[in-house]
Nucleic acid binder design. Sequence first.
DNA 1: AACCACGGCAACCGCTCGCGC
DNA 2: CGCGCGAGCGGTTGCCGTGGT
Length: 293
Amino acid sequence: MRKPEASFDKNKKKLRKGLWSPEEDEKLMKYMLKNGQGCWSDVARNAGLQRCGKSCRLRWINYLRPDLKRGAFSPQEEELIIHLHSLLGNRWSQIACRLPGRTDNKIKNFWNSTIKKRLKDVSSFSPKESESSLYDPNNKYFNIGGFTSPMQHYQHVEFMPMFNSSSPSTSMQATVLNSIIESLPMLEHGINMPVAGGFFNDIIDNNKGFGDMFFPSLESVSTTYDHNLKVENACKNIDANSSYLNNFNNKIKAENRDGVHNLFQEELAMGEWDMEEFMKDVSFFPFLDFSNL
DNA sequence: AACCACGGCAACCGCTCGCGC
DNA sequence: CGCGCGAGCGGTTGCCGTGGT
């Protein structure tokens, strides 16, 4: 928020800057609802606003748009943001496309103020403290000595994508999960996760031992097999009629065929986004193809 | 009550990209 | 091909509210 200032447009007309007044909001809102989106400099002029088009665009997109979701982020949204950030990095607009009603600015602010801070707190844990209890084989969660870490949200999303209301049975989940855990890439490649910038880079920059903190110890599993095959086989063993797992299975096959990056090159337009489908599609992304490392 | 520090977030800035001419 | 312009994006700024002392 800034103090209202003034600048000048090409016609030497005073342009307001800073906070929007309720009157300005009303003018812009009325104009947009009546005329829809056009050239933003025209919007500013025709709506009788002494603002630049850019400012009007921002105000509309980030605050006035009727389809905006107000209020705090839900835990589900938070998880999704963290997950998507691990995949997409700081591409806030891309992340926003996948969170209906949320703007890139809002998500960016939320990330920078809340999530980043939490992740930083977690990364300050030393590997020694957590080594002994980092993985609980009973509940399949990575545990840090009973510490209720926000990272557990991250892990939940990243490692346990099938754990939602529409997912298969618990035993099925466990079977798949065991295979996934065994195929964790860092077991073979240290902490060089094949993710596009973002979360892991941040953490790794701050704490070189991070990889040791949150994943099973190296001696617990073999490091020589084909983890992609493992994941696929795990799925084959499970109910073949499960559309969920068929879908998942096909994605893995496509991954192995086309390479990991292709999965994310398709752009989803606003409104086409279906959270559940996307979670199915992307949840295993970091674990699928390590041949390029 | 006054002061201070800090976090949240709205808004701005600078840059890139795409398009029309 | 180059230029100008508008749109969009990510990074940054700085005001305001709130909690602590």
